[in-house]
Amino acid sequence: MQLTKNFTLAELVASSKAAQLGIDNTPPPELVPRLVLTAQMLQAVRDKLGVAITVTSGYRCRQLNQAVGGVTSSDHTQGHAADIVAPGYGTPTQIARTLAPLVSVLGIGQLILEGVKGKQWVHLSTRVPTVPANRVITITDRGTQLGIQELP
């Protein structure tokens, strides 16, 4: 199902871990409207960056979320979030620095630059956190910091 010009539902639910473990990662019908909003946010980000973006993790059913070590309150389980990279644009840090001042314009509720266990990506969610300071943060193996910080 095509959700926007450049994003499909299949792209937002694809998971090699789910395939490996035989987990059905099909979202319930009531979450599809949220996934449409997530795809619209991703489309705005893609249009701003001017390059293709790769969704490395989108919707995750609770079983898949547990299998990948996600927190129980993860926005991924509700269809609000996607983790992305855009090698044609630059590093996750460069992407996050570009997007951070534009979160409201692009429909991003929360932007997290993540650098954990040697991997780096940008987490984008349509859900705005209850604590405004948590809207743009960096998470590394050393913990959470406000704003976009250099990754180790």
Rank of each mutant, 00 (worst) to 15 (best):
K117A: 12
H123P: 04
T98L: 05
T38F: 11
T72M: 05
L124D: 10
I84K: 00
I95N: 10
P92T: 11
T26Y: 08
L146Q: 15
V32W: 02
V71C: 01
L111K: 04
Q120S: 15
Q43K: 02
D75P: 01
R127T: 15
L111C: 07
L113N: 05
V116E: 04
L113M: 01
R46S: 13
Q43G: 07
E30N: 14
R127L: 14
R142A: 15
Q94N: 07
P101M: 10
A39Q: 10
Y59H: 05
D24A: 15
T91A: 06
A133R: 12
T72R: 13
A81H: 04
T140D: 11
I112N: 01
P132H: 09
T93G: 00
L31M: 11
K48M: 10
H80K: 00
L64T: 02
A39D: 04
T130I: 09
W121T: 02
T130E: 13
C61Y: 00
V71G: 01
H80Q: 04
A44T: 03
R60C: 02
V131T: 12
K119N: 11
I139G: 05
E114A: 13
H80M: 10
D47I: 03
S104A: 13
V116H: 06
Y89E: 04
G50Q: 08
D24N: 15
A100G: 04
K48E: 15
Q40C: 02
G88Y: 07
V85C: 06
L42K: 07
K48S: 13
G90T: 11
G50A: 05
Q110L: 06
I139E: 08
G143K: 14
E114R: 07
P101N: 06
G115W: 12
R60I: 09
G79N: 08
V32A: 01
V105Q: 15
D47M: 05
V71S: 12
L99I: 07
A86T: 04
P28S: 15
P33M: 11
G70D: 13
T54H: 13
S125N: 12
L124P: 07
T72E: 10
A82P: 03
G143N: 14
N134E: 10
T26H: 11
A67F: 01
P33V: 06
G58T: 01
S74R: 07
T138D: 03
G70I: 01
G69I: 11
Q110T: 13
N25R: 13
D47E: 14
S74T: 15
T91G: 01
Q66A: 14
V105S: 08
S125H: 09
T56F: 03
V36N: 01
T144H: 03
A100V: 00
T93L: 08
Q40D: 00
V32N: 10
G107V: 05
P27I: 13
L35D: 14
P92N: 04
A44R: 14
N25F: 12
D83I: 06
R34N: 15
